[in-house]
């Protein structure tokens, strides 16, 4: 397990360097003017362009540029917004809110998704199975921003069950509806994954053995099958964190939640490239580290991976 952990950590380094370089390269070296739109609809004055190029070392060779940028990132320097506020300052304040929203969504996703998948798999072709299949399909087909807007209209505005927007009150209750919407699509995928997986595992040889051992059905499913079915679920949750983070841009925009997603949402509208790149890079770093954790968890769940 120790060797496995070290190996995973080492494998992570080139991915982090590669991914951040990719972003940096695409943003600063692709055709196009990085200062475009920063000065309203007119092109920026030469003096501003010169200052911008100086600040971001755009006259250095690409690798040097990237190196300097990453040296800043490591020290928590993600550049400054159009308004002159350091990106890192905004991020640290907003990250707590987004983390709260994200963890709530992840919790809702895991609990409901796994439960729905298990119930569907236990009686394939039954009533619950069909309800799960149809409803998940509908949720997957609806884009997040439509679901969010419609639920905001009905549950927030018409029936006044939840706050319409969140604003400065980031309590559990205020974030409940946004977290639920954020979780919805992932939840649907997870339920389907869990269903397929569990029903496949229920037909496996070791389940037959467990039944031959005279174990109660609850133990056959709850201990022997579930543990095996959770292995791909954990991988999915890690991968899906990326989708959840993309979703926060939409959800925090619609529900006006003062998190990182909202910051990116507004920066997109302001065409503030530095903020977008800085904030997204920060999210991707969090995503990669979360996946490292998932990998280690995967090793714990599946001894075939970690006990070679």
């Amino acid at each position: 397990m120790f060797k496995f952990t070290v190996r995973r950590l080492l494998q992570m380094i080139p991915v982090i360097i590669g991914a951040t370089f990719l972003i940096y390269w695409m943003v600063f070296s692709l055709p196009g003017d990085p200062t475009a739109g920063k000065c309203g609809d007119r092109p920026c004055p030469d003096a501003y362009v010169a200052q911008f190029e100086e600040e971001y070392n755009l006259n250095d060779p690409l690798l040097v540029q990237y190196g300097k940028y990453m040296a800043g990132v490591v020290q928590g320097d993600f550049g400054e917004s159009y308004y002159g506020v350091p990106v890192s300052e905004e991020l640290s304040e907003r990250f707590v809110v987004t983390a709260k929203l994200g963890l709530m969504a992840l919790g809702i996703e895991a609990v409901i998704g796994i439960l729905a998948g298990v119930l569907a798999a236990l009686k394939k072709g039954g009533f619950i199975d069909n309800v799960v299949l149809v409803s998940t399909l509908a949720v997957i087909a609806l884009p997040l921003f439509v679901t969010a807007s419609v639920l905001q209209l009905y549950l927030g505005i018409r029936w006044e069950l939840f706050p319409v927007t969140v604003g400065s009150d980031t309590s559990f209750y205020a974030l409940l509806l946004p977290a639920f919407v954020l979780a919805s699509v992932s939840l649907a995928y997870l339920a389907r994954l869990m269903r397929t997986n569990l029903s496949e595992n229920l037909g496996s040889d070791y389940v037959r053995t467990a039944r031959a051992k005279g174990l109660p059905q609850s133990r056959v499913v709850g201990v022997h099958t579930l543990r095996n079915s959770l292995i791909p679920v954990v991988t999915f949750l890690g991968y899906d964190l990326g989708a959840l983070m993309g979703g926060t841009i939409v959800i925090e925009g619609i529900f006006n939640i003062p998190g990182v997603g909202n910051y990116i949402y507004r920066a997109i509208n302001d065409r503030d490239g530095v903020v977008v790149v800085g904030a997204v890079t920060a999210l991707i770093l969090v995503y990669l580290f979360a996946n490292l954790v998932v990998d280690l968890l995967y090793g714990l769940l599946d001894p075939r991976i970690s006990h070679d």
């Binding site: 070791y206 053995t209 467990a210 001894p303």
Partner: peptide, 18 residues
Amino acid sequence: GPGIAMIFQDALSSLNPV
């Protein structure tokens, strides 16, 4: 288990891998 027990052909897939 206590009354009748059984073993199978493919022990690898018949044992729980985790």
